[in-house]
Simulated scan of single mutants.
Amino acid sequence: MRRRSKVIGSVVALVVLIVAGVVIGVVVSKHNSSSSSSKKSASGNSTSGYAVGPYGVVKQSDPNDPSSFLKDDALKQSFYGLAYTPDNSQLPDCGNSLAAVIEDIQLISQLTTRLRIYGADCNQSALVLEAIKQTKVNVTAWLAIYNVPNNATAYEEQRDKVLDAIKTYGTDHVGGVTVGNEFVLDFMGANGGGSDPNDAVGTAGGELLIANITDMKNQLSSLGYSVPVGTSDAGAYFNDKVLESVDYALSNIHSWFANVSIAQAADWTYTFFEEENVEVAQGLSNKPDFAIGETGWPTNSTTAAAASNGPSTASEENLQTFLNDFVCGSNKNGTEYFYFEFADEDWQAKQFGGVEGYWGLFHDNRTLKGITIPDC
């Protein structure tokens, strides 16, 4: 099961883990009232068409043709990229469906031309590529493997699913394959590591990850595919040897967990990314491409105590501020990023509590939150 720790340093990581442990499994009525009262209906500006998807949000002029979906005036293709996980795509409870992914892709394609996923369990890779094929949209997907330290089977099973999807659909809509999400961070946390990803513990975890990265490169090459292979980690947890083994890296940077105010959130994110990631990468021999793999702002929490990062709160109003500042700012300064995230993930709220499940632009039922997508 995918777990994301949006941390910047070891102290922040410890605080996040403590908070998560306290609030796991607790869902308060605040979420229920917010989800029902503040949501906007995407594609609800048209009375014609057929709502054929499981969420009933997107309408099609032809119920049998997913490419005939009707556009929503509320959605703007302003985002460089989006982070996305199909509903019900975590083992052992696979319950996703092509129909649901098609409806998601219909919405996503109105916001961006790029998306990243986090793993290959539950046939995510093939579902995403098939949905892109059927909707005929201009979307490129960064496929992924969520490998687990000391579990070769998890890597190999997902690797084979990614390769099967590429064999079936080709690489026209594949931007890369990301091996690992916060692998070094998790390895260090599980093995008594400190805050330096280049210490002995971080390097040991990095060697495990490099073996998987190298294997994926070799597998793709042996099949004749030229696809970039990268990795993703928390912003301060990139091991230099790992960076030297990849074509690209995605940095998860969340001002929320650094206790930064919403007024300073976008500028702080840019500064952190440049100083901690871009400058480091430029000093390596291979100079891997770097993009922000996650950044965003939560809108809710399972408890009132976890709804504040100190100077700011989780709210739709503050999400709007972050969107205006970061999305429009990035479009001006050229920062490449995958916005976190497309839709709320109810399973994260239930399992980890706090703000973990409430980072989406959409509620988990795919209705737009009480925000205005910036047109910039």
Rank of each mutant, 00 (worst) to 15 (best):
K59P: 05
I371R: 05
C94P: 07
T85V: 15
T271I: 10
A165Y: 07
I213M: 00
T299D: 07
G81H: 06
V101Q: 01
N239F: 05
Y146P: 00
W347L: 11
Q158W: 04
T321N: 03
N331D: 12
T295N: 10
S29G: 13
D289Y: 12
E345A: 07
Y270S: 11
S35V: 11
C122Y: 08
N138S: 13
Q124D: 12
E244D: 15
E130P: 02
V327D: 13
G25Q: 04
S245I: 05
A265T: 00
H363I: 06
G95I: 06
G180D: 09
L98N: 13
L361R: 10
D346W: 15
Y237K: 03
G56K: 00
N123S: 11
A154T: 14
G293S: 07
N365E: 11
H363A: 08
P149L: 09
Q124V: 15
W359Y: 08
G370L: 05
S48K: 12
S255H: 06
T171S: 10
W297G: 02
I373L: 08
A236Y: 06
V11N: 08
T113S: 15
S251H: 05
S285I: 10
N191R: 05
L284Y: 08
V52K: 10
I253G: 00
L115C: 10
P149A: 10
G9H: 11
Q60L: 10
N333K: 11
P288K: 00
Q90L: 11
Y339V: 08
P311K: 02
P66W: 06
N181K: 05
Q106S: 03
T47Y: 09
I105N: 05
W359C: 05
K71L: 14
